[in-house]
């Protein structure tokens, strides 16, 4: 069976989520290796957003429509997407690994008796067989996974795994096929999305960020990092567990559910480098990591690394900088 590849294009409040283009690039690459066509799927109340993806090199765009799809809910999305999958019987369904996809795609896959091959960082297609690579242990291990059995394979790709600007554009606009889909009972009612009151500190404007992770061990030890930050004229930030524990306020959190920053210098102290943290800081100019584990994933994106105990490194570094500053 070879009925092509579907790729999900996500939007919120009338704006397409750019990571969808990364999924389009992934799907196109898979399509090229397998000799299969790629069709985009947009869910919504009408075809307005479907028209925005017709510029990509696609066999077509399916716009699955129902008034209940105006606001995102997992019930409505799973119902609508299920109809599309049943009608087209694709071999692969590709998604970006976003919070919205995490919310409904496992439900969709479950209706086909499957789970998702989730959060993939790459894939390889050889002789018709596809091997997906997923991250395990918060980025500390990779696993090559082969999906088998009949029917569609549902896979999600981690943000940054493919480049959205490499999604191929087509010559002629892809045709939009509007289909009215049935949606059953929706058992949850969303209210309007909101942001918490404006953050007290705007870390996007700082040149130097000293970020601490669980390796800092206790709230009192934060003073060590604070001192270094003052010396470099920078600000203090943290990984999620530090804010979860209440050691620093949430507006200091860097990552997918916190702030996204790109300072000139980012020093990560005792942070392992889970993807949800990396997405918030990987575009910093210079990245320094101090970690006692030489295999910590943070070193994969660091320009400079010190493998060692931060309680030795940080005081020594503070002293050296003091010396240099005279």
């Amino acid at each position: 069976m070879s009925n092509g590849i579907l790729v999900f294009v996500e939007h919120r409040q009338g704006v397409i989520n750019k990571v969808s283009f990364e999924a389009v690039a992934a799907a196109q690459q898979l399509g090229a290796s397998l000799g299969q066509e790629v069709t985009a799927v947009v869910l919504g109340a009408d075809a307005a957003l479907a028209n925005e993806v017709t510029g990509f090199k696609l066999a077509g765009v399916v716009s699955a429509e129902n008034p209940k799809l105006a606001d995102y809910t997992p019930d409505a999305y799973a119902d609508a997407f299920e109809k599309v999958v049943r009608a087209r019987e694709p071999q692969y369904v590709i998604f970006p690994h976003t919070y919205l996809v995490r919310d409904f795609a496992p439900k969709l896959a479950a209706r086909f008796g499957k789970g998702l091959v989730s959060d993939c960082v790459r894939m390889k297609a050889e002789g018709g067989a596809v091997t997906f690579t997923r991250r395990l242990f918060q980025g500390k291990m990779d696993a090559d996974v082969v999906a088998s059995g009949g029917g569609a394979v549902f896979a999600t790709f981690q943000s940054g795994a493919y480049r959205g600007d490499q999604a191929e554009r087509g010559g002629a606009a892809a045709a939009v096929e509007s289909v009215a889909v049935e949606v059953g009972e929706v058992r949850m009612q969303p209210e309007a999305p909101f942001q918490e009151v404006k953050a007290a500190v705007d870390l996007t404007k700082t040149d130097v960020i000293i970020a601490i992770g669980r390796g800092i061990k206790s709230q009192e030890n934060i003073a060590l990092a604070q001192k270094l930050a003052e010396l470099l004229g920078g600000d203090i930030a943290a990984s999620r567990p530090i804010c979860d524990a209440g050691w620093l306020p949430i507006d200091r959190q860097i990552g997918s559910s916190g702030q996204t920053v790109a300072p000139k210098l980012y020093i990560a102290l005792g942070i392992s480098g889970a993807i949800q943290h990396l997405v918030g800081m990987k575009n910093a100019g210079t990245i320094v990591a101090v970690n006692k584990d030489a295999e910590a994933p943070i070193f994969d994106i660091a320009d400079y690394g010190i493998v060692g105990d931060l309680f030795e490194v940080v005081p020594a570094l503070t002293e050296e900088i003091q010396k240099l500053k005279g």
């Binding site: 789970g115 500390k140 990779d142 996974v145 082969v146 088998s148 394979v153 295999e295």
Partner: peptide, 10 residues
């Protein structure tokens, strides 16, 4: 429907 073939350091 998914089988791990190999686990390794990234």
């Amino acid at each position: 429907f998914q089988t791990v073939e190999r686990v390794y350091l990234p």
